[in-house]
């Protein structure tokens, strides 16, 4: 069933991809016989039978994850998107601190070690990367470190 749902979604995307390849993509001037549209057409035409095959003969019935795991994964995804959202405006140090705290606490770390770890990664990570390795990381609201 899990396989079928995924393949179903994939099929819709592939059909959309193929339809676009056959209708929308078109070059006003084209110098080679194939143009920009032929390659996506070929891919779409090969992909759809493969997906239909998976639909007909699925081999993964269910993902077999308990509800608790799903909630944990959902929380992780929310944290990651929040981290991505805050990364630039808040700056590396604060965003990383918040993200590491949230995730390590969710995974069962105790408060004090989690605090030490998160602060360490945020501050040491920032200076290691920006000063020593010369990588570009956002300073965010802590503009004094820029």
């Amino acid at each position: 069933m899990a396989d079928r749902i995924f393949a179903g979604v994939l099929l819709l995307v592939a059909i959309g991809y193929t339809v676009i390849a056959f209708t929308v993509i078109h070059a006003p001037f084209q110098y080679d016989p194939l143009g920009p549209e032929s390659w996506p057409r070929i891919l779409g035409v090969v992909a759809i039978p493969c997906i239909l095959f998976v639909l007909a003969k699925p081999d993964v019935a269910r993902l077999g994850l308990p509800g608790k795991t799903w909630r944990r994964l959902a929380a992780l995804i929310v944290m990651l998107f929040a981290y991505a959202y805050l990364f630039q405006p808040l700056g590396f140090i604060l965003a990383t601190f918040a993200f590491c705290m949230a995730l390590s606490l969710m995974l069962g770390a105790r408060l004090v070690p989690a605090l030490a770890f998160s602060a360490g990664i945020g501050i040491v990570g920032y200076f290691l990367c920006t000063k020593l390795l010369d990588l570009n990381l956002p300073a965010g609201v802590l503009t004094i470190f820029r």
Binding site: A84, F99, L103, S104, C129, P138
Partner: peptide, 19 residues
């Protein structure tokens, strides 16, 4: 401990892509 290793992977990935 896994609870520290896991966030570390995310941080490394973010540093890598952003930089």
């Amino acid at each position: 401990p896994q609870q520290f290793l896991t966030p570390l992977i995310a941080v490394l990935a973010f540093i890598g892509v952003y930089s």
